[in-house]
């Protein structure tokens, strides 16, 4: 278990409200961790997808999550982003916001961005428009009808597209991109959101080795000023990320530590090879 657990109190009283971006001053910050998950449990029609998952992530930290199919990786992401409500357990963001009480847009507004396993970009829109829609800023309908989002300078979008290597495709419909390019576009959209925490689900699935290496570099660069959680199966890629690794199994944490420590752990070896 992580040493951040030592900071965790026995009971948690602080909650975030859906509509206030800033926590009230008197709210006690219960943990210094950016993301604090404790004893999360989720059941779907009798199937226990999470069985007491606990995990903490520090500010600016990058973490790789590995684990076999059904380990609960995607369900964990769903709980963090508000797609699934856990049956019990605590999920705190920034020490004050109770993620189990917020819905997806409110959580996105707090500064948690997510890239999906299957790349989901807006296929009808151009690559540049996809970035435009992701840019941080007011999300209300009126703001988008009359507001600044209609007057965004091209340079801002171009800078992001350059970063993810899609500048040459800026005017193409996103539907025309290759699978790998869509993955990058989605990472670019994440960057445009400028979140405090990025959740990246299998970013290199379907990528060539060269693209995988480039993606690892890109993620390391992003991790310099953002906290990142990467879910991935590709061990070479995880190794290239050079970060702490958490192995999930059957909805709970099995092992945590450096990539070498985790991959040498006999429990992990058994889970991957033994069955």
């Amino acid at each position: 278990m992580s040493d951040a657990d030592l900071l965790a109190p026995v009971s948690v009283t602080a909650t975030g409200r859906p509509d206030d971006g800033h926590a009230p001053a008197q709210t006690r910050r219960v943990t210094d961790a950016l993301l604090y998950l404790d004893d999360l449990k989720v059941t779907f029609d009798g199937y226990r997808a999470l069985r007491g998952l606990s995990l903490t992530l520090d500010r600016g930290e990058m973490r790789a999550i590995i684990g076999p199919n059904g380990a609960g990786k995607t369900t964990m992401m769903d709980c963090i982003t508000g797609k699934t409500r856990p049956d019990t357990g605590t999920a705190l963001f920034d020490g004050t916001h109770d993620l189990t009480k917020l819905d997806e847009p409110a959580i996105a507004d707090l500064g948690i961005g997510r890239k999906f396993q299957k790349p989901t970009v807006f296929e009808s829109h151009t690559v540049a428009d996809n970035i435009l829609l992701a840019l941080k800023g007011p999300r209300s309908g009126l703001a988008s009808l009359f507001g600044w989002r209609n007057r965004v300078e091209a340079e801002r979008i171009d800078a992001l597209l350059t970063k993810v290597g899609l500048i040459a495709h800026r005017s193409r419909p996103a539907a025309d991109l290759s699978h790998g390019q869509k993955q990058w576009l989605e990472i670019g959209m994440l960057l445009a959101q400028d979140p405090k925490l990025l959740l990246v689900d299998e970013p290199v699935a379907g990528m060539t080795d060269a693209e995988t290496a480039e993606t690892a570099t890109l993620l390391r660069e992003i991790a310099r000023d953002h906290a990142v959680i990467v879910v991935e199966h590709d061990m070479h890629f995880v190794r290239a990320l050079q970060c702490r690794v958490t192995c999930l199994h059957e909805g709970a944490v099995l092992a945590e530590g450096s990539i070498d420590a985790v991959s040498a752990d006999p429990k992990v070896v058994e889970v991957y090879l033994g069955r």
Partner: peptide, 8 residues
């Protein structure tokens, strides 16, 4: 209603 991840 049926429940579950697949349905959602």
């Amino acid at each position: 209603a049926l429940k579950g991840r697949a349905v959602e």
